[in-house]
């Protein structure tokens, strides 16, 4: 099962941020722009890291920002943000982060297929540096093996 189509609004390339909060906010902004979430969800993603630390940096250079399902999640969504300058999240091995994925799901069970496909994509270690270096949305989509939504074609 491929990942769902990724709207241009859910992608931000070469974003300038000062710190990890800015990086997670950018991933949240992209989820909001694409209609997946409201701003409260972005605040909750930051809250997860405030509470539990930088464990969301799950691979070298990559953070998977996320929070629990909630009323601020309208539809399941994924966003992709690449940073102009990598930032530290405070992870002992995987800092600095240059790619932030924002993940929003509406229930704990339904996202398993989505996550399994994310794992398929990122089991290739070349994908994270290639995403970080990508300069346009089509390259990002190609690396993730996703299409644009029908209304953008």
């Amino acid at each position: 099962m491929p990942l769902p189509p990724l709207p241009t609004d859910a992608i931000a390339i070469g974003v300038h941020v000062a710190d990890w909060r800015g990086a997670v906010s950018a991933a949240g902004d992209a989820l909001e722009r694409s209609g997946s979430t409201s701003h409260e969800y972005t605040k909750r993603m930051i809250g997860v890291i405030d509470e539990f630390g930088a464990y969301v940096v799950i691979a070298p250079g990559l953070a998977l920002a996320h929070a629990r399902p909630g009323p601020d999640v309208h539809t399941e969504g994924l966003s992709v943000v690449t940073l102009a300058e990598p930032v530290a999240f405070g992870h002992p091995h995987n800092d600095p982060v240059s790619v932030v994925l924002g993940l929003a799901v509406t229930s704990g069970d339904e996202h398993v297929l989505l996550v399994a496909e994310l794992a398929n994509v990122f089991n290739d270690p070349h994908v994270i540096p290639a995403l970080a270096a990508a300069s346009d949305v089509d390259s990002i989509r190609a690396l993730l093996g996703v299409t644009a939504p029908a209304e953008e074609l």
Binding site: V48, Y55, V56, P69, H111, V115, A116, A119
Partner: peptide
């Protein structure tokens, strides 16, 4: 195990099964 039980822990589960 992850902080909120979705997302990162699900990725860990999928790859642990592999």
């Amino acid at each position: 195990l992850c902080g909120v039980g979705i997302g990162t822990s699900a990725i860990l589960k999928v790859n642990a099964e592999r």
